[in-house]
Design a protein around this nucleic acid. Structure first.
Length: 260
DNA sequence: ATTGTGGCCTGCCCGC
DNA sequence: TGCGGGCAGGCCACAA
């Protein structure tokens, strides 16, 4: 589920754990630990310690252990975080109830009786120690127009594929990409290099506006296009039946009428 | 190096 | 009611 807007909410929630002494580490699912990390190792690193800082790059949530390493949390498509039993986002798409304690893949207990949990039905997320932050591009929330131009580059790859490439720009997922391209009136399948200076300006403006607006509304699934993301959806702007294709390896909805 | 594909893993929804 | 197929907001290894 989470794109950068959701992970940003997770970060705010995780900030509540800063400075609290970790008295318990639960890693019941070894598969959920990445980069060779073992339950014993992660326990050793965290027990008796606390987090000093919370950070986010794209969809990666980072918790810096006080005078220690960094815990990296990824949420895949269905992961969420709970702190002291509270979730950042109560409503989840594609599910009536993704809130079953059986799906807890990683957790911490704190000395004050509180807790943090990662709950992920599909187990596509994970926990990693000192993740390679350099593999991620600039965070989409802060990208400038010039940086966006560099991201798109002189590539024949589909525009949407570039926006989804986390090594170039971090944080944009499938729903946000469709929404901002729809708003900007740009065909997701257009070669990345084909944008005119005016196209680039428009995309940059709508990228920022999409993140701002959907963030304020409560998440990546709050876009204007979202409710029409179905087989018989029509463009909310001009009523044209929406196109459904695979672009950049992902299901893509776009309006053949105004996205060029 | 860049780009596309398949696969990971599990749950849910729809149609029969 | 049960079952199979398709689908899902991410990411990685792999191949061309």
């Amino acid at each position: 589920m989470p794109e950068m807007l959701e992970v940003e909410e997770y970060r705010r929630l995780a900030a509540l754990t800063l400075g609290r002494t970790i008295t318990g580490v639960h890693a019941p699912d070894a598969w959920f630990l990445k980069g060779g990390l073992t339950p014993a190792q992660v326990t050793e690193v965290l027990l008796g310690r606390s987090f000093a800082a919370d950070r986010r790059i794209g969809k990666l949530l980072l918790l810096d252990v006080d005078a220690g390493p960094t815990l990296g949390l990824r949420f895949g498509m269905t992961g969420r975080i709970l702190v002291d039993g509270r979730a950042a986002i109560d409503r989840l798409e594609y599910s009536s109830d993704r809130n079953d304690p059986r799906w807890d893949r990683f957790g911490l207990d704190f000395a004050d009786g509180g807790s943090m949990r990662m709950r992920d039905p599909r187990r596509l997320g994970g926990v990693e120690l000192d993740p390679d932050e350099g593999r991620l591009g600039i965070d989409a929330a802060a990208i400038t127009q010039a940086e966006l131009r560099d991201v798109l580059g002189a590539s024949d790859a589909p525009l949407k594929a570039r926006l989804l490439d986390q090594a170039r720009v971090a944080g944009i997922g499938n729903l946000l990409a469709d929404e901002m391209l729809w708003r900007a009136g740009l065909d997701p399948a257009r070669p990345s290099r084909s944008l005119s200076p005016a196209d680039l300006r428009r995309l940059h403006r709508h990228l920022r506006a999409t993140l701002d607006e959907l963030g304020a509304r409560g998440g990546s699934h709050m876009g204007d296009l979202q409710e029409m993301r179905s087989r018989d959806g029509v463009c909310p702007r001009d009523g044209t039946p929406l196109s459904r294709r695979t672009v950049g390896g992902r299901t893509t909805y776009s309006c053949p009428g105004h996205q060029r």
